[in-house]
Design a protein around this nucleic acid. Structure first.
Length: 423
RNA sequence: GAGCCUGUAGCUCAACGGCAGAGCGCCACACUGUGGAUGUGGAUGUUGUGGGUUCGAAACCCAUCAGGCUCCCCA
């Protein structure tokens, strides 16, 4: 123990069981994205820090990124997010892509943060975006992809909800309150924090950033008005599209959803578990209008969202929504009786594998009892025995480990019999 | 970057200044050609790491590492 080198803070080791969870999430993410016709892509894992310096906040670049000098003296960063890479990739081929672009990705990201439940320094994230269309219907499609994913992992609408708001709507409300443009960011952050602070402290905070009593009262009445969306044509169209897409049960309007990101300009949304130990968002995203211009492209509007593997993984585990773990992809174990039968056992394995049957072999002679215990732990469905008696008669014993029944078949019939018993 | 809580066998935890333990799991045997169940026996360890206080430290103090809760942040 003493001399063991620990894992780097905030990283996780994926033992087969955790790897199965990651693969499960990846499979569901891919299925949801592909159901809507999205193409898979990826960017580099290491980027120049300048890519993020352009648009991402100072906090991110200076404090929350893994940045270091490479051997040539350039500052490089382990990517903390994908959107700037996506924007650059789109901008580089802006005139040859077919629009709308519908792309998705699932890969590793790094952020130098304080690890907690639901937050690691190295994590996997699903990113999915549609670019080249600026419409409430496009926004609705992304929300529908998110809802499709939630449904596919068993998070029904009573367990998870996607909350939606619109930046433009909020801006027009803030205009009515005469909150100056340069205060908007602070107000957004204030709104973001509301559920986490007690009321009196929140009020005090509001005064601190320069709101007066009338503005504070106005802000509170906006934030408690869950019918506000009806005043926005954009959101009205958005909700009717969701209705048609069949996912409106998942989606609720909530004026408290702001999202800290600077680049969101229209619809914003975040999904939360309705009850449970985690108060963190499962996924979040929105519409951004100006991102491409910042990396040298022509203006192009996009909408997308991201989902980390950590929070959804914890929720699926806590809700018991994961399929039972299979220790091995093999369905069959071929036991090894003694050294003299080793070649026959291996030949039998080869036959099975050639027929497409995943097959484990016990790698050394041992008591059958021990081999059957191993088969049990590995949860294989069938165990095959080829001992001296069987070898002499040209037979193989096949035991069904679930029912406990076993049959003797001729060597030539093993493959078809195994296939029959597995089907 | 700040505050607080936790770290003991593979796992969950007990012992809270006086011989480091239990349950589960693991291994062996009963059962030398058949798993899950049962019984019997067995092995667990630098008490996260380093230092200090003390006759004596898993326990108290300091430092450090990791995890968790909160602040911050969530691009």
């Amino acid at each position: 123990m003493a001399n063991k080198i620990q894992t780097v803070k905030g990283t996780r080791e994926f033992y087969p069981e955790q790897m199965a969870l990651r693969t499960f999430i990846y499979g569901k993410v891919r299925a949801a994205a592909q159901a809507f016709g999205y193409q898979e892509y990826d960017g580099p894992f290491i980027e120049s820090i300048d890519l993020y310096a352009a648009k991402s906040g100072e906090e991110l670049v200076k404090k929350q990124s893994f940045t270091f000098e490479d051997r040539g003296g350039d500052l490089v960063t382990l990517r903390p997010e994908l959107t700037p890479s996506l924007a650059r990739m789109i901008a580089a081929k802006q005139n040859e892509l077919t629009y709308p672009v519908r792309w998705w990705s699932f890969g590793p990201f790094w952020r130098y943060e304080q690890p907690q439940k639901g937050r690691a320094r190295e994590f996997f994230q699903w990113n999915i975006d549609m670019l080249g269309v600026n419409s409430p219907q496009a926004d609705a499609e992304l929300v529908a992809v998110a809802a499709t994913f939630l449904a596919s992992v068993g998070l029904t609408p009573d367990k998870a909800t996607i909350y939606v708001n619109n930046r433009r709507l909020m801006d027009s409300e803030f205009d009515k309150l005469q909150i100056p443009a340069e205060r908007r960011l602070e107000v957004s952050n204030l709104v973001d924090r509301r559920s986490k602070m007690d009321a009196a402290k929140w009020d005090a905070n509001a005064f601190e950033i320069g709101l007066n009593q009338v503005q504070l009262d106005g802000l509170k009445s906006i934030l408690s008005n869950f019918e506000l969306w009806k005043e926005s044509d954009e959101l009205t169209s958005f909700f009717s599209a969701l209705e048609a897409l069949g996912v409106s049960a998942y989606v609720k309007y909530d004026p408290n959803i702001m999202r800290g990101l600077l680049y969101y300009t229209g619809t914003v949304f975040e999904a939360f578990e309705t009850s449970g130990s985690l108060k963190r968002a499962i996924l979040g995203g929105g519409r951004y209008d100006n991102l491409l211009a910042d990396v040298g492209g022509q203006p192009l509007s996009g909408v997308g969202f991201a989902m980390g593997d950590v929070v959804i993984g914890i929720i699926l585990q806590e809700q018991g929504l994961l399929p039972s773990f299979n220790p091995t992809p093999a369905n069959v174990l071929v036991t090894l009786f003694d050294g003299t039968l080793l070649s026959q056992a291996f030949e039998l394995c080869a036959q099975l594998r050639k027929a497409g049957i995943n097959t484990l072999v016990y790698p050394e002679p041992a008591k059958l009892q021990k081999q059957f215990k191993f088969a049990d732990k590995m949860k294989v469905k069938l165990a095959l025995v080829l001992g001296p008696d069987e070898a002499e008669q040209g037979l193989v014993v096949i035991k069904n480990l679930e029912s406990g029944e076993q049959v003797q078949v001729k060597r030539e019939a093993v493959v078809t019999e195994v296939q029959k018993m597995l089907s």
